[in-house]
Simulated scan of single mutants.
Amino acid sequence: MEPTSQNETESTKTTGEIVSSKEEVETNQEVTEEQTREEIETVSNILSSDIDKDKSKNALMLEAAKKEKDKGNEYFKAGNIVEALRHYHQALLNINGIQNNKSHAIFRHEQNKEAEKDELQEEIIKTQALIHSNLAACHIKGNKPSRAIECANKALKLDPDNEKARFRRAQAYISEGNIDAAAADLKKLSNPDDPMVKREWQRLKIKDKEMEAKQRKDLKGMFERMKKQDEKEEAEKKKKDAELQSNTSLPENSANEPKIKELEPEVDEKEPKIQEIIQ
């Protein structure tokens, strides 16, 4: 066997170093990836813990909001609208203090899975819609239809299927005389045979007739005012024409008016004749 040449030895050495370096890089890369996974898992665990704490806190605040809502309901049934409004507003303050945890979803392990239904969030939205609907009922009792419509709109934005909010908005529309909007809401209610719904339909018809009668009365009054204005302007025109005609016509001779001769100057016989003063 021929002895290995120096070049072959160096080539073999170089190849070994390359393989060793590659293995070292791969090992370091695996270590780095493992550390990264551990760090992400740690952060995710911390955030999950925070989310659980937030959920627990939110659940307590939701429960407090529901209690305030229930107190408001009791005062509303007793006819104490002022106290009912106070408790409903306090319930909203509790709802508004609840944190939204959706911003943390990206850090969860199940972030690549289909998002699960957040039952707590749905309950929060539903409760908030109920409170706004109850506020609308209070404003209807207080004869403030515009405020009632505003609250009902908020409730329906949160929960489009909230029929009480839609019914109360229809009531407020009728009070304002917005017949078309009220009819549109009443038509969307799922139980048209409900006695309260029928009552509002009857109230809407009465309001419609009242509006028609008022419009006819307003039109009649407007025509009468226009007629009186025309008569007044015609009388003023005739008066001005008569005055103008009186000022421009020649006066008739009166017995008291002086005769032309009376207007001629008397001639003094002693005054010099015209030919005497001409030079």
Rank of each mutant, 00 (worst) to 15 (best):
F107N: 04
K71E: 07
G79H: 02
K71Y: 05
E74M: 11
L93H: 13
H87F: 08
K67P: 01
E74A: 13
Y75S: 10
L85I: 08
L93F: 08
K71V: 08
L92W: 06
N94A: 12
A91D: 00
L85N: 04
I98P: 00
N96T: 12
Y75D: 12
A65D: 05
R86H: 10
I95E: 05
A105L: 02
Q90N: 14
L93G: 06
H87Y: 10
L93R: 15
F107L: 05
S103C: 00
H87G: 00
A84C: 01
R86T: 14
N80P: 07
H89I: 08
L85V: 11
I106G: 03
R86Y: 11
Q90V: 11
F76T: 01
G79A: 05
K69V: 02
L93V: 14
G79T: 01
F107T: 02
N101Y: 11
S103I: 12
K66P: 09
S103G: 07
A65F: 03
E68G: 00
Y75F: 15
L92H: 00
V82R: 10
Y88Q: 01
R86M: 10
L85A: 03
N73Q: 02
A65L: 09
G79E: 09
K77C: 08
Y75Q: 11
R108L: 00
L85M: 09
I98E: 05
L85G: 03
K77N: 04
L92N: 07
V82P: 03
E83C: 02
A65I: 06
I106E: 09
F107E: 05
K66V: 15
A91G: 01
A91V: 03
Y75A: 14
R86D: 09
K77I: 07
I81A: 06
N94V: 08
A78T: 13
H104I: 10
R108Q: 10
K66S: 13
I98C: 03
E83L: 07
G72C: 01
R86S: 15
K67E: 07
N94S: 13
K67M: 01
K67A: 11
E74I: 14
A91Q: 00
V82W: 06
I106R: 12
Q99K: 12
A65Y: 00
K66Q: 15
K67T: 10
A84H: 06
K71G: 06
G79R: 03
N100H: 04
D70V: 14
H87L: 04
E83P: 04
Q99C: 03
H104Y: 15
K102R: 14
D70S: 12
H104E: 10
R86Q: 14
E74Q: 11
K67N: 07
Q99M: 11
Y88L: 02
Y75K: 15
D70T: 06
E68T: 04
A65H: 00
K71Q: 12
K71N: 03
R108G: 09
K102I: 13
E68W: 06
L92R: 03
G72W: 00
L93N: 12
N80D: 12
R86V: 13
N80H: 06
K66H: 10
S103W: 13
R86K: 15
R108D: 01
H89M: 02
A78M: 13
L85Q: 04
F107P: 02
F107G: 01
N94F: 15
H87P: 00
E83I: 00
H104L: 13
D70Y: 09
H89Q: 14
A78W: 09
N73V: 06
H89P: 02
